[in-house]
Amino acid sequence: MRAVALAIAISLPLPALAHPHVWIDTGVEVLFDAGGRAEALRITWVYDDFYSMVLVEERGLDADHDGNATAAETAALQGFDMNWDTGFSGDTYLLSGETPVPLGPPEDWTAKFEGGRLTSTHLRRIDPALPLEQPLRVQAYDPSFYNAYTIALPPTFTPALPQGCKAEVLAPDATAANEQLLAALAEYGADQDVEADFPAVGANFADELVVTCGAE
């Protein structure tokens, strides 16, 4: 029976089959209105060297392979990652406390290829603007874990972080996340939609920017 239990244990990671093939250093800028409410997020994605190269070369750009795009090549790159399928979340999740807050479609995007890395930014509007009564939480993750997001760039606030607020970037608690994953798998049955359940699990593995106001 020990062998059987072990066989089951080996098989456990299977629904978490996916391992990432793309690494994205993520930056989050929160834009506030005059009343100190969050009205938009600007998301920056810096793709890893290898995937940057794939994206650039398969478009026939960077003909000299020097890791930098010319002005014409940069123009051709604009919007390369903004052709989203309907229903795609953009791998950015905004929450007010525990409540998900919808984000507008991407707009006002930019792209550049410098030093071998492809960087894009885009704006997501929050409508209506979100007061910071509850902690504002921005999570970056891909539920399918094809892309691995890390909030590696320091968060920025425009025009500034409102008075009495503090911001911190939280890395996932790997042990707690893994326990939740195992718990989710233990409950998982053949009649359940794994994909539908997975975002909740994915969020546990996500980097998160948390802005808390007036706590002290």
Partner: peptide
């Protein structure tokens, strides 16, 4: 170790390794 607590450590180690290799891959191709 793999199936239990070490699974997370191993997974994180494998992820870090994969990420590191991903950076080197571009240089190797170039």
């Amino acid at each position: 170790l793999w199936a239990g607590g070490g699974f997370t450590a191993l997974r994180l180690w494998a992820l870090a390794g994969a990420r590191e290799v991903q950076q080197q891959m571009a240089g190797a191709v170039r």
